[in-house]
Design a protein around this nucleic acid. Sequence first.
DNA 1: CTACTAACTAACCGGACGGTAAGTAAACCG
DNA 2: CGGTTTACTTACCGTCCGGTTAGTTAGTAG
Lengths: 241, 241
Amino acid sequence: MFPTREDVHGIRRLEVLREAAASFNFKGYHGTSMNEIAASLGVTKAALYHYFPNKTSLLAACFEHAMDAAFASMERARKEGRNGRERLVLTMSYYVAQLINELNCCVVLMEDRALEPEDQAKLVRQRDRFERALRGFIREGIDDGSVVPCDPKLAIFVILGAMNWVPKWFKPSGVWKPDQLNTALAQMFERLISSSPVAAMAGDVGELPSRSDPPSSLSALAELGRGARVTKIAKKIKQSR
Amino acid sequence: MFPTREDVHGIRRLEVLREAAASFNFKGYHGTSMNEIAASLGVTKAALYHYFPNKTSLLAACFEHAMDAAFASMERARKEGRNGRERLVLTMSYYVAQLINELNCCVVLMEDRALEPEDQAKLVRQRDRFERALRGFIREGIDDGSVVPCDPKLAIFVILGAMNWVPKWFKPSGVWKPDQLNTALAQMFERLISSSPVAAMAGDVGELPSRSDPPSSLSALAELGRGARVTKIAKKIKQSR
DNA sequence: CTACTAACTAACCGGACGGTAAGTAAACCG
DNA sequence: CGGTTTACTTACCGTCCGGTTAGTTAGTAG
């Protein structure tokens, strides 16, 4: 009664998406079979087709999710940042936090060539819009004096490259906590583009200052309550088989 | 008579490797079929098996090549650089130049999970050694005062991420010339880690200063003479069919 | 209890893929 | 010249993958 049938369906769908995202991230889209995803969830392959019509739609959903997070992060940063530099750094900070919390690990926006043409076109359009807006932050920062004069395109590519590389080495279970990563990355980006010399950064992993602010990711999908419910209900479902 | 039979074999083998690298880079390892690689070279799939015993060995050769380039770049940079920062930046500069010139476009060291276990173990070992050495440059730079105090691990990850992202947006045929990219990237990295504030960078794509030094990539495999020969002989081979 | 539906499983299909076998045309070599 | 090797091609094999179909089970609604 508490969770309606539609709720359960949506939650289960999200579980499938998470597992797929983690697998795509780990072994690549083409390197991951529907069988593997299903096995990780303890079901058979055919069951996945109750939630997604085909494999590429799974990938498309990953990208959609990631782009939503990107734009949400940017909107929030646009309001909270006081100049171009702050807005850019905040965008990246919120973005990486969301991706780490929400999907098991970040979806790297790399295998877009595996998408259906129409989905890919849509993604490319969105990504271009996102990157253009990021470059806008750079230009804004150069104008307001918060960002050192530089080529906006290259600066954004460097930052995005560093971002997209994160899932290749960051493990949530490792010594680095997500918050530490987030803070340290933000410091790096700040130093990269700031117009003023930046204070020395923390000297070692163990000494990284953890953020004193409240955690940054608060998107509708990421709040902890829902995350907990997903797991609990999934357990129930599995036991009742 | 000028090119012996073994020469031709080696050259043709390199052509296959280049094509494979470009394809792997473009569509991913699992997303590329042997048929596609063969078709791009104007031969049938079976012909590839005269040069490489199987598909994974092609990937392994790509990685081997890339790691050789990496260590060669580092050795050269170690000699030429006058402090930790210079050595690090030079390593990355030589490395990206080699990868762009030699293989059609860079091999991204991403799909290592597709390798045979033994090859993967070897790659991981080499990559770890490379990254450890890079972190060594950072520490060296912090000690000699050329690098701002920071976490070496994170700094290297950020730089490597930016590097590995290059092939996703850089097209040799685009407005950016390889030399320009190289210079601009080096400036970015320098700014990221340098202990002293760095002068403002070039303001726009068109205004990027091209390097006045001689081109940086001079590895045995990359010299232009050989590159030209490859193409010429390949043409001859194709015509004579 | 019956009728229905959501959620799944088992079994299967066509096609593509990595890889192999057998054959052939040209180049090389004594 | 004849024998051997090189560099392929054509044709094929077994396997695995994405996706479908038909059927089963469990829960729900009336």
